[in-house]
């Protein structure tokens, strides 16, 4: 069983990119929330609802692309609902986020029960999947082509999103305003910015991103919705955001780290290592990484603000 023991690098790298897609959407959504000064704990529930909306939308509206749009619209709507609860009703954001996650866990099952008559999944509905893309030229490069080409179209969208967000946040006026509203709302207000409008822009973008991530789960990763299928990916997005120093490139690296350990855990399970212990590794790594990073940051801050020009928040 020599083939079972050595890790096939190409399929491992391919799997890493595949499992990274929903995580990357999640962590980018969390990044936008955090930049806009909004708590991101609701990302998990929003993604779950969007996964359901994606599959249901594809079935009702007659195609996976329609489902994707429906999923994104659901994400934006829920994000706005969260914004209304926290900004207008002044609900505690963490508690409101937990509420949204609880709601998503129950409501998705409630809805698919009425669509399919069962509570487990929407496998009986034919909702289809978004296409995989053979990247021209790249596909012909040896090894690299087999790793980077042939992924779902949303995988490429997720990677482009990182670059687009970097450009948006740091090179555009709206991005600057969004960050200002998140970092210091009083100061932003005092120079005439509408903080509420900036926050709703963040809610819009993050909701759409969470929608993409959720819809990918049911329209790309697999071809149906199953209950609780996001399985903590929104929470991982939060962790990746906090590990990635809150900049798109850093968050991408943190997400990649998580994806590698996730894909590795699948590979190692095939080598008959205990699957449960392999599954807990990425989460353990995250806790350790956040602890180390936070300690480092606290020390730097204690050394004085001059030592760290990037830190603006107290």
């Amino acid at each position: 069983m020599a083939s079972g023991i050595s890790i096939d690098f190409v399929s491992f790298a391919f799997a890493t990119i595949r499992v990274m897609t929903p995580l990357l959407f999640a962590s980018m959504a969390c990044l936008v929330y955090t930049k806009g000064g909004i708590d991101s704990i609701a990302t998990e529930g929003i993604m779950l609802m969007c996964a359901m909306a994606g599959a249901a939308g594809a079935w009702l509206l007659g195609g996976p692309f329609q489902g994707l749009l429906f999923g994104m619209a659901t994400g934006v709507a829920l994000s706005f609902l969260f914004g209304y609860a926290t900004l207008s009703l002044k609900a505690n954001p963490v508690l409101a986020g937990i509420a949204l996650n609880i709601l998503a866990g129950g409501l998705t099952i409630f809805v698919i029960y009425y669509l399919t008559g069962e509570k487990g999944s929407t496998q009986s509905l034919s909702s289809g999947t978004l296409p995989n893309v053979r990247v021209p030229l790249l596909a012909d490069v040896p090894v690299l082509g087999r790793i980077l080409s042939g992924h779902n179209v949303l995988t490429y969208v997720s990677l482009l999103t990182v670059a687009a967000l970097h450009f948006f946040l740091y090179k555009t006026r709206s991005g600057l305003r969004l960050r200002a509203a998140g970092e210091n709302p009083q100061a932003a207000e005092s120079v005439g910015l509408s903080v509420t409008r900036c926050k709703y822009l963040a809610l819009f973008i993050a909701g759409a991103l969470a929608g993409l991530g959720g819809a990918f789960m049911s329209l790309g990763y697999v071809s149906f919705f199953s209950k609780n299928m996001t399985a903590g990916r929104g929470f991982i997005g939060m962790a990746a955001e906090s590990m990635g120093h809150g900049v798109p490139g850093g968050v991408l690296l943190a997400t990649l780290l998580f994806s590698v350990s996730d894909a590795l855990s699948v590979q190692l399970q095939m080598m008959s290592l205990p699957p449960e212990l392999m599954q807990l590794m990425p989460y353990l790594v995250t806790i350790v990484a956040i602890a180390v990073y936070s300690r480092h940051r606290a020390r730097r801050r204690a050394a004085g603000p001059a030592a760290d020009p990037k830190e603006v928040k107290p």
Binding site: I41, F235, A239, I290
Partner: peptide
């Protein structure tokens, strides 16, 4: 971790829940 490292307890506790889940399942199964 919050007190000693200033780590956000919300994020670490959410991650910890999954560690505990899989650790528990490992003990039960094996």
């Amino acid at each position: 971790l919050k007190v000693k490292c200033h780590a956000n307890e919300l994020v670490t506790s959410l991650m910890l829940n999954y560690v505990l889940l899989y650790l528990g399942l490992y003990v039960i199964v094996n």
